[in-house]
Design a binder for these strands. Structure first.
Lengths: 217, 217
DNA sequence: TGTATTCGATACATTGGTGTATCGCAATTT
DNA sequence: AAATTGCGATACACCAATGTATCGAATACA
């Protein structure tokens, strides 16, 4: 099972690229809806407006397609998070729980594809847990994201004259866990109740934890 | 898709019960290894030492078997956690980060079936996220567990003259998230390194968070 | 514009898993 | 012990999905 996407650096035609992208888009939807294992090649091809013929002349297998998709979306998410954090950096000289809360809320709520992404991430993790080869790739991605997040948080907090009382890397992991878990619980609760499983509640929790492990420098 | 297990309160023969249990045990292994979607009825039956004939005369479908399994294991885990927490209650008049850490470590490390359980739990959550009916059942289980955990923690902390500065229910959710995420990361890291993804590291993190949200009454 | 090549559609053979219907053995009942 | 019922094995028909081989059309190139 090949994990790294670009084995041969073939220069693909514009047409080929378009087709591949449409297939990846379709796969994103179909995987989210049915799961990787249950989704069929035919469903994916059909959703993209093709037949299986197109699929097999563009991808070796469903798995290869999945890794291409994961690669792409991981990068998108990574960039978005990094850009978002950078944007928030030069706010003002103070940082309050409310501010943190609203930053997090932005990220939790305003991503239209949170649902699909959350499902894909879970699928990815499950593959990783079952296949050591996939595991390596998965870990590498997590590593990169957590390091970036930790560094950004350090910068951000330093700019307002504070510092963390917990290793920023460890803190990032904690926040990541609460974030993922929170998204899932919000999704599960549905939009039908104002209980404890809302975007606001999750954001506040995260903010409080950040607060609890921050002190004046 | 029926979720609640006992529609008809049929008194099943001892033989039938034994067969069902063997099938459930087998399913636990096979599901953990291949995932619910990929696992076949034949694999499960074979692992249990039966043919598919036995399977179909005991279960309607793979899904029904899964819910029977989830029910059973959920209960086991719930009881184990409750018993464990109760046991730790009357320690001594003080509670330190180290103590909390070691309690958590017990739970994180000493469960031989952590791996399978973690995988099953993820599968369950994925089903829940995709099927509202399953979602209700899943939420109910989580609700119950978190409430119990919150209550126990309150008791425990009160006995040593402390209290939480965060709603114990919310705290339980946070700890649950970190716990699950931690198990997964430990599993992914494998037993081959002394990095930050070890049982000890996760236990310490949890302990620190508990500590951070605790104060003298 | 004509030619070459790439790529997607169609058709086909094959496989693996499903669910059911039937049979016979073993456990339970009297 | 004989009779009956419950339950697991066997066999079969069926279907859904796969992967490949071939063909024709669209695109790139001269």
């Amino acid at each position: 099972m090949s994990v790294d996407s670009g084995d041969a650096p073939v220069i693909e035609s514009a047409r080929r690229k378009r087709t591949r992208d449409r297939l990846i888009d379709a796969a994103y939807e179909v995987f989210a809806e049915y799961g990787i294992a249950t989704a069929t090649v035919e469903q994916i091809a059909e959703r993209a407006g093709f037949t299986r013929g197109a699929f097999y002349s563009n991808f070796e297998s469903k798995e290869e397609l999945f890794f291409a998709l994961a690669d792409r979306e991981n990068q998108v998410r990574f960039d978005r998070l990094e850009a978002g954090l950078t944007e928030y950096l030069p706010e003002n000289g103070r940082i309050s729980t409310d501010q943190i809360s609203s930053i997090v809320r932005d990220f939790l709520g305003l991503q239209p594809d949170n649902r699909s992404w959350c499902l894909m991430q879970s699928e990815f993790q499950m593959l990783a847990l079952r296949d050591p080869e996939v595991g390596k790739t998965y870990i590498a991605g997590e590593e990169r994201a957590m390091t970036m997040l930790g560094d950004r948080l350090d910068e951000l907090v330093a700019m307002v004259g504070l510092r963390f009382t917990m290793n920023s890397r460890e803190l990032s992991t904690v926040l990541g866990a609460i974030y993922s878990d929170g998204i899932a619980r919000v999704m599960l609760a549905g939009s039908t109740n104002p209980g404890p499983d809302t975007v606001d509640a999750v954001s506040d929790t995260i903010a409080r934890i950040v607060q609890a492990f921050t002190e004046p420098v």
